[in-house]
Computed example of a mutant assay.
Amino acid sequence: MSLFVSEGQTYAPDRGMFERLADEAVQRLPEPFRRLLDGVVFRIEEFAEEEVLRELGIDNAFDLTGLYTGRPIGEQSSMLSGELPAMIHLYRRPLLNEWAETGVSLEALVTHVIVHEVGHHFGFSDDDMHAIEDAAG
């Protein structure tokens, strides 16, 4: 049973609930990883912006549940100024859709997206992360 989504709940979890789920997911990461997330901004949005979807070649906004924007930690420098902070975006409506379609807990989906986007913060590619997941599974 979910800590945040009660049995028989008749409304979709709101932005505040997603923020709590994301915070819980980050708190479950090993401390050395959490420490390196200082300064990373977590944003909960309904959907990715049209421009983002276009840049990524995604036609359906429901196909993108999360995104990392910013420089990976190994490319950051104190000599760079004027850049936005690194951000992890969680897209609420696509996550809710996946939750409804798959029956996977919302906590598990949010955690999966957080871990995936944190991987990008550390400089891993999608292929790197898939290989790690395959090796762990």
Rank of each mutant, 00 (worst) to 15 (best):
L64H: 03
T69V: 14
R35S: 08
L90Q: 07
T69R: 05
R35Y: 08
G57A: 06
A61S: 11
E75G: 08
L67M: 04
Y68C: 04
D59E: 13
M79Q: 07
I44P: 07
T69L: 14
E24Y: 14
G57Q: 07
D63T: 03
V41L: 11
F42R: 05
I58H: 00
A61L: 10
A25E: 03
A48N: 07
L37A: 05
F47L: 12
G70I: 01
I88F: 10
G74K: 11
M79V: 04
E46Q: 15
G57M: 05
D59L: 10
F42H: 09
M79W: 07
A61P: 13
L84K: 06
H89Y: 15
E50C: 00
V52K: 09
E24C: 10
H89A: 05
F62A: 00
E55G: 12
L90R: 09
D63I: 01
I73C: 07
Y68N: 02
E31V: 14
L67P: 05
E45V: 14
S81I: 12
D63V: 00
I88N: 01
P85K: 01
E50S: 07
F33Y: 12
E50Q: 07
Q76A: 03
D23F: 14
E45A: 15
Q27A: 11
E75A: 11
G39A: 01
S78I: 10
E49C: 04
E49M: 06
H89T: 07
D23M: 14
L29H: 05
G66F: 13
L64K: 03
G70H: 03
S78R: 14
M79R: 10
T69N: 06
L80C: 05
I58T: 00
Q76T: 12
P72W: 06
A86K: 00
E50R: 13
F62G: 00
T69D: 10
E24S: 14
P30G: 04
R54A: 09
I44G: 00
P85C: 01
E55T: 13
V41K: 13
M87G: 13
G57P: 05
F42E: 12
D59H: 09
M87H: 14
H89V: 10
M87R: 15
P30L: 03
I58Q: 03
T69A: 13
E55F: 14
I73A: 01
G82I: 01
S81M: 11
E46K: 15
L53Q: 06
L53I: 06
H89K: 08
V41W: 12
